[in-house]
């Protein structure tokens, strides 16, 4: 207390050390996320091919173009189809698996957990190619279905619009259910097991326990996984490229895949691609906001 000035400088030094620790990471995020995001926004008002860009006329030309571009509207529909069908099925399945595996009387718990989590060890490209091969015309699934007498001739899963989309959903479920299950298992470990034992003594059925205890107590984790999955699905790329190649005739293409094609596969139209990518940014933000609002309300 006798020397307030020296204490001040010590505090200041302490404070500066803190900033020194976090500056590299913070600066990188600023330069690699926020700066490009603003650049993408500015770029979305430019027109032209390659690096030969000029201001769009009218200024919103790229944005109005999106709504008349049938491939892009198809890619939005596809992405939302994956989102609406796959994410709820996956999260419910993961929750059910986690609550079964949380049961203390269960045997071989570790083994089941490892096996169900195993798909997460494969890369997205690798599993997309495995599924593409399994569901090929001469693939194992067709072979099995024909031999079992369910199909007379092999069905071209990947060249029919609806089945191609369903195969992508099956692939996503396979790859990500175990991943989300691990999050729920971690969340369940924070819940006192005695709560479950008390519920059992009170005569609650497993289904009641699931809805009255597990789901409400896991709400923050469910919210986190819902936001992560929504975010991931809106950015789906690897599967669309390697499982179906967006086909047949763009019937299963995702938004990211189409943006990639417009920027790097064909003659680049960076301005238009940036406008489309900015729409994804807005969608991600809006959906995350809605999910957080819904998550808050149920209290």
């Amino acid at each position: 207390m006798s020397k307030p000035s020296s204490k001040m400088s010590l505090d200041k030094k302490h404070n500066m050390t803190g900033w020194a620790f976090l500056t590299p990471a913070a600066l990188l995020i600023f330069l690699m996320s926020f700066v490009p995001m603003i650049q993408a926004f500015l770029l979305s008002f430019k027109m032209g091919k390659g690096n030969n860009l000029s201001t769009a006329d009218p200024i919103f030309a790229n944005y109005t173009r999106m709504f008349t571009d049938t491939v892009f509207t198809q890619s939005i529909k596809n992405t939302f189809f994956y989102l609406i069908i796959q994410v709820p099925i996956m999260l419910v399945l993961a929750l059910i698996l986690a609550s079964i595996l949380n049961n203390r009387q269960l045997r071989f718990k570790g083994l089941f957990r490892t096996m169900i989590f195993l798909p997460c060890a494969t890369s997205l490209v690798a599993y997309a190619i495995i599924f593409r091969t399994l569901f090929a015309n001469d693939g194992l699934v067709n072979l099995a279905l024909v031999n079992l007498g369910i199909l007379k001739t092999p069905y071209a899963f990947l060249t029919h619009a609806t089945s191609a989309k369903i195969i992508i959903i099956i692939g996503l479920l396979w790859r990500w259910t175990g991943y989300n299950m691990v999050f729920y298992l971690s969340g369940l470990q924070n819940i006192e097991y005695s709560v479950y034992e008390a519920a059992k003594i009170d005569g609650a059925s497993p289904i009641q326990t699931f809805f009255k205890i597990t789901v409400p107590l896991l709400k923050p984790t469910i919210l986190l996984t819902a936001i992560m999955s929504t975010n991931g699905t809106l950015q789906l790329f690897d599967e669309s490229v390697n499982l179906t190649d967006g086909g047949p005739a763009n019937a299963s293409i995702t938004m990211s895949h189409y943006i990639y094609n417009m920027s790097f596969k064909y003659v680049p139209t960076f301005g238009y691609a940036a406008a489309m990518s900015f729409l994804i940014l807005i969608l991600v933000a809006v959906l995350a906001f809605i999910q957080m609002k819904v998550g808050d309300k149920r209290d």
């Binding site: 996320s33 995001m37 993408a40 809106l234 790329f237």
Partner: peptide
């Protein structure tokens, strides 16, 4: 921030 939104810049 989705990666596609920053990829082009």
């Amino acid at each position: 921030v989705p990666f596609v939104a920053t990829m082009i810049p």
